[in-house]
Design a protein around this nucleic acid. Sequence first.
DNA 1: CTCAATGCAAAGGATTTGCACAGTT
DNA 2: AACTGTGCAAATCCTTTGCATTGAG
Lengths: 144, 144
Amino acid sequence: MLDFQTALYQLRQFLKENNLRFTNERLTILEEIFQFADHFDAEKLFNHIRKHHRHISRATVYRTLDLLSQIGIITKENLGNDFASYELAFNVPHHDHLICVECGKVIEFSDQLIEDSQQKICKKYNMVMIRHQLQIFGRCKEHQ
Amino acid sequence: MLDFQTALYQLRQFLKENNLRFTNERLTILEEIFQFADHFDAEKLFNHIRKHHRHISRATVYRTLDLLSQIGIITKENLGNDFASYELAFNVPHHDHLICVECGKVIEFSDQLIEDSQQKICKKYNMVMIRHQLQIFGRCKEHQ
DNA sequence: CTCAATGCAAAGGATTTGCACAGTT
DNA sequence: AACTGTGCAAATCCTTTGCATTGAG
C-alpha cells in the first residue's frame, strides 16, 4: 500500500516537473487524507480538515483532490451517490467495491478472473483499457 | 429486448396497482424514449421531447424517469459523467459498458464469466446482490 | 368531486470559477 | 519580482421541490 512518504515524494516530483508550487495547503491536505484514509468524499474530508486548519477553503480541497488524482495518489470514483468518492491508490493491481445499499458499508475485493475477462473484452472490441470500475450493490450480512 | 407494448402494459399495470394516474405526459415520455432508445440522459431526452411537445416540463421528465426506473422499464446508471444515464431495460440477464474517454462512445457487452465471479464474491462476503455495474474506460479503435 | 400530476420557478447539493490578495520560487 | 495558489462568494450544473393549477378516475 502507498505510504505517506512515497505519496509526498510523488507530489513534490509532480509539482517540480510542472512548475507548480509546493504549498502548505497541499501538504496539509495530503497529510489529512492519510489520517482519514479509506474511502472519503470531498465534503467529509473538508470538514475533517477544518477542525484543525480553519483557513483551508473548500475550493482548495477540491482543487487539491483533482491534483492528487491526476498524479495517481488517490482515485476518484462514483459509488452510487450523487457525489464523488475518493480513496488512496494502492499498489495492488486493482480492486472493486461491494456496497451495502442499507448501511453504505464498502467492502473492497479483487478478482483476477474478472480482471482477465475485462482484458479479453477490450481486445474483442478493439479498446485500449485505461481504467475500470465494478460496483456490486447489495445487502450485507447485517441488513438482509 | 423490451418492446413498447410490453413497457406500456407494465406502466399501466403499475399505475393501476398504485392508484396513480395514466397521464398524457407519461405516455408521451415513454413513447419518446422508445424513439430515442439506447443510452440517453435526462437533458438530452428533455430536449428531444421539447421539439414535439412544447408543454412538457423538465420536472415531469425527471419525475417520469424516476417512475420508469422504479418499474424497471429503464435503468439508471452513472457512466462516469456528472449526470445520470438511462437506458431501456433489456431482457438479457445483464450487460456492462465500455466507454471511450475520447469520443464518449458506449459499447455494451455481457460476460457470463464475470457474472459468475460476482456471485461467488457476494457469497464470500455474505452479501445478497441487488445489482451491479461494471464500466471499462478506454480508447476505442478510432481514438488510440 | 377528489387527489395525484403538472408547470413553473425557485431551491438544493456538489463542484467550479472569477477575482483580488497571499505566498512560492 | 513573477506568477501560481488561495479564499471567498458567486456561478454553474444537474436534479429536486413547493405551490397553485390542471386533469384523470
